[in-house]
């Protein structure tokens, strides 16, 4: 065992986790501001300059609130479920490469926590485990609305996870690997087609997969317009109706962390990650992720919510066949050697 490596990885992971948590807090601020501008409002602007201290105030408020457990709840599960959601959310960021390795104090510090062979599948696996946070939370509340919200959410997440996974298969076929580093390396190549010089970003060779990924990712993170599980008008607040205080905030924050992770993933998988003009670097990835986050907020401000059957129908009857079509086409292209471009 290489203790040194382990320590370095641990250190990088620690830094990353803290950055993520901070980002997540300011994501709420970002969303509220942007949403407000889109709706011709001002948004939070009282706590600190531009309301920048608002997330901190919110956090203190939530932590200070009473933690209520309903009488007929399944107590242990009720207490653990939000932790599960929250704990699993940032793990996905562990495999996202933030750049080449750094040399500090004579040590080589890789700018990612773990380079594993099956990185993308690992992220998908985390997503599938994340379902338990929702379904157990809904079940343990001992509340019919919660249970229904949890069931809906589970069905939705499973369905869209399928689409998410299948939409990525095209990328896997082109890159020949599940490893995010390999995928990134492939995208850093330059594509020369006649007079054109293009980056080999997969958004260009896999536009259909990119669209499917974006849609499925929005549904996977339970965001508008796919935020059925928390539809206030129908289900009070879905699976976290009974939660309050910091347990509620766990669910809430897990959602935002998931958004950030998915944005980072999208940035890495489809638009070249740290690759960019002038100088490669983590700022490009940040910029791309920021755009996707903005896109999330934009969607929420623009689109009305889907009806449940339309939502499931969309996944199974439209997106899934499209994903399969994309796989077939990509496979054929690869088979005929056009993918070697």
């Amino acid at each position: 065992m290489d203790w040194q490596r382990l320590l370095v990885s641990y250190f990088v992971g620690f830094v990353l986790l803290n950055v993520l948590l901070g980002l997540m807090a300011y994501m709420t601020w970002f969303e509220r501001r942007v949403l407000a501008r889109m709706q011709h409002r001002v948004g939070p602007n009282r706590t600190g300059p531009f309301g920048l201290l608002q997330p901190i105030a919110d956090g203190i408020k939530l932590l200070a609130k009473e933690d209520i457990v309903p009488a007929n709840a399944d107590r242990l599960v009720f207490l653990v479920a939000p932790l599960l959601s929250f704990a699993l959310a940032p793990l996905g960021a562990a495999v996202i490469p933030f750049g080449e390795s750094l040399h500090l104090f004579g040590l080589e510090i890789p700018l990612l926590v773990a380079d594993i062979n099956v990185a993308v599948l690992y992220v998908l696996a985390l997503g599938s485990i994340g379902v338990y946070g929702i379904i157990l939370g809904g079940y343990a509340s001992g509340n019919r609305y919660s249970l229904l919200g949890a069931l809906r959410s589970t069905a939705q997440v499973i369905s869209y996870e399928l689409v998410l996974g299948l939409s990525l298969v095209g990328v896997f076929i082109l890159a020949g690997s599940f490893s995010l580093q390999d995928i990134l390396r492939e995208q850093q190549r330059v594509l020369v087609i006649g007079p054109l010089t293009l980056p080999n970003w997969y958004i260009l060779s896999q536009p259909l997969a990119f669209a499917l990924f974006l849609i499925a990712a929005v549904a996977e993170t339970n965001r508008a317009p796919f935020d059925l599980p928390e539809a206030e008008t129908e289900l009070v607040a879905g699976y976290f109706t009974e939660y309050s205080g910091f347990r509620f905030s766990f669910y809430f924050l897990a959602e935002y962390i998931n958004m950030i992770v998915v944005s980072l993933l999208a940035g890495t998988l489809f638009v070249g990650g740290i690759d960019g003009p002038f100088a490669d670097g983590v700022w490009w990835l940040a910029l791309k992720a920021l755009f996707f986050l903005f896109f999330y907020v934009w969607l929420r401000a623009t689109l009305p919510r889907f009806r449940y059957d339309q939502l499931m129908g969309l996944a199974w009857k439209v997106l899934l066949p499209l994903a399969l079509l994309n796989i077939g086409l990509t496979g054929l292209v690869r088979l005929w050697g056009i993918g070697a471009l």
Binding site: L121, L124, A125, S128, I129, Y132, I135, Y139, I158
Partner: peptide, 19 residues
């Protein structure tokens, strides 16, 4: 297989059972 175990067993089969 580890990842498949998580995705298929934990993520799909057992979720289905709970469902």
């Amino acid at each position: 297989l580890a990842v498949v175990q998580v995705i298929v067993y934990a993520g799909a089969v057992i979720v289905l059972v709970v469902f």
